[in-house]
Amino acid sequence: MAGHSKWKNIQKRKNAQDAKRGKIFMKHAKDIYIAAKQGGGDPEMNAGLRLTVEKAKSDNMPNENIDRAIKKATGDLDGANFEELTYEGYGPGGTAVMVEVLTDNKNRTASEVRHAFNKNGGNLGENGCVAFMFDRKGYLVIDQSQTDVDEDSVMLEAIEAGAEEMETVEGAYEIYTDPEDFQDVKSTMEKSGFAFEAAEITMIPQTLSEVDESAGNKMVKLVQMLEDMEDIQEVHHNMDANEEIMEQL
């Protein structure tokens, strides 16, 4: 995966989540809403909804919040209608950036996203301008300190479960799958006793774009500004910079 690793970012972000719990719950609620809207409100029959509910529970989102989001989507409660959109552009230093949003007002969101790019030395582009630089993959992380299974055994289990690839990074095993195989791989490995520190379907950059310190600091500000927006669900990029800058993301 071209040296791409999300593990360190995940570790750093855990410490900041308590302060942003309200925003995190809101983002989970929107994810649950759209998944239930598309595939129905029964997690047993809707794999996408099941995954979003699991992610929400991993962040300790209350069951009543989860149920409320599902009921809004299925029409049992009144609520706003949300739309999924993706914005693409170039960040400082020519980095590729993809922004996934869920909004009930796309004009407002487009204006806010464009402002963030312009303020931090980037440019919002047309749809498709950077999407070809990313692959949509299932992504699973096993913390090495939480398992006594050796690397070869983990890899064998992952491949037998249907994973495409596994990489060992500092402190973790990162497993990649085809999006359609993600749930099967996750369930199979969980039945074998593995627990995941992260489990999601995400965008993985094909190659990384190395930037200098100045561009890297601007990129950090761009990503943080985007992630602080209520409508933003995920920000994907291909920046590679020194460790100090990457740890700020």
Score class of each variant (00 low, 15 high):
K23M: 15
D143H: 08
D78N: 14
F134H: 02
A131L: 11
N63W: 08
N46M: 12
I34C: 07
H236T: 08
K37P: 00
I201D: 03
M246R: 06
K137Y: 00
M246G: 10
K119E: 12
E100I: 04
V235F: 07
G91Y: 04
G48I: 07
T188Q: 05
N118C: 03
V141C: 09
Q38H: 13
K20T: 09
R68M: 10
I34L: 15
R50D: 09
Y176D: 05
V185G: 01
Y87W: 11
V154C: 00
E244Y: 09
E44F: 11
I245R: 05
A47Y: 12
G128E: 04
N15H: 15
V220G: 01
V185W: 00
N105C: 07
K72N: 09
G41S: 02
G171Y: 02
M45A: 14
Q17T: 13
E167D: 12
D212G: 09
Y33P: 00
M239T: 05
D104V: 08
E197A: 10
G75E: 07
V113T: 03
E197K: 08
E210W: 00
E230W: 07
G93W: 06
V235R: 09
I159N: 01
P179I: 11
P179Q: 08
D178Q: 14
F196P: 06
A110L: 14
E234P: 01
N118K: 13
T207D: 11
V53S: 05
D59F: 11
D178F: 10
D152C: 03
V185H: 01
M61T: 03
G121H: 06
N81E: 15
T74N: 07
L226W: 03
K72F: 08
A16Q: 13
V169K: 04
P62V: 03
A158I: 04
V223P: 00
P92K: 06
Q183S: 13
V211R: 01
N105D: 15
E247G: 04
A198I: 10
N46E: 11
D212C: 05
E213K: 08
N46T: 06
G216Y: 03
E112G: 05
P92G: 07
M98Q: 07
A29P: 00
M1K: 04
S209R: 11
